[in-house]
Each structure stands twice: as structure tokens, then as C-alpha cells.
Amino acid sequence: MGWLQRLFGLEKPPQAAAAPAQAPTTPSGETVAPERVGLHGEYDQSGLAKRVALAFDNDPEVDDIDTIYVAQTGSTVVLKGKVPNQAILTKLVAVARGVNGATAVETNQVTVG
């Protein structure tokens, strides 16, 4: 089971991107903040967390870890849970930081070992 399925109950969409090409706009013409852009470029309150989960699904080094959860607080990605070693946590942080809209990655709720 992939990250999107496990965390959000969503199937991995065939054409979704961790970094949509263009930010959507609201009906009033305002640009949606990068952390609120969903998998298909639409407004999504949890858009950043879903795009991080998609990025994890797309990375073979972390695609099978099922003891970590992804959330967001504004533009901060919040990782929670347990990882087997520091190298995996470092990789998760690097992937999450690479997602458009992520300004920080919080790991103080992650246990290593």
C-alpha cells in the first residue's frame, strides 16, 4: 500500500505531480499559496502533505515505509512515527524539502531505531 493510500485513502493518480506546473487561482483571482495546491493543481487544505506523500510514493528508497505519517502546519511538513535508522529519516526530510511549498520539515515527533 502506498503513502497516498495509507495516509489519505487515495489511489496514486497517473498524472499528478509533486510540483504542479501552475498555482491555481481562487474565483476572485487570488493565487493559491503553494502549500494549499492539491495533486491536480486544485485548492486543497492538505495539498502539501498529499504532494509529499506522492513524492515518497515516487521514491523507491522510501516507498515501503509504513511507520511514518505526514501532516502539515502551513508550509511546514510534519513527520510523525518511527523510522528504522537515521539514514531513512534524512532521506525523508530531503524528499519532503524538495516538494514545492515546503519551507521546513519538522521531525521532533519521529523516533529513530
Rank of each mutant, 00 (worst) to 15 (best):
A87G: 12
D57R: 01
W3V: 02
W3I: 02
G101L: 04
R6P: 08
A49M: 03
V70M: 03
I65A: 06
G74E: 03
Q22L: 11
L7H: 11
S28P: 08
L7D: 11
P34Y: 09
V105E: 04
D66V: 06
I68D: 09
V83W: 01
I68E: 10
G41Y: 07
Q109L: 13
P34K: 05
N58G: 12
A53H: 00
V37D: 02
V110I: 08
G113P: 04
E42T: 10
V77P: 01
E106P: 06
K82A: 13
P27Y: 06
T111K: 13
F56G: 00
G41I: 06
L89K: 08
I88M: 11
P24H: 06
V110T: 06
A18G: 04
N100Y: 14
V37T: 01
R6I: 06
D44L: 14
P24V: 07
A55R: 00
D64Y: 15
A71Q: 12
H40T: 12
V70A: 04
G47W: 01
A53T: 00
L7Q: 13
P24F: 09
V105L: 09
L79C: 06
P34I: 06
P60E: 13
A104H: 15
A104L: 11
K80I: 08
K50V: 04
L4G: 03
V112F: 09
G2E: 11
L7V: 10
G38T: 04
Q22I: 07
V93Q: 12
K12W: 01
V112T: 14
G2C: 10
P34W: 09
M1F: 10
D63F: 13
G47V: 01
T107Q: 03
A17H: 12
L48V: 04
A19M: 08
V112S: 12
P24M: 08
L89D: 05
K80N: 14
N100Q: 15
E42G: 10
E35P: 07
T76H: 11
A21F: 10
T107Y: 05
A49E: 02
G101C: 03
E30H: 13
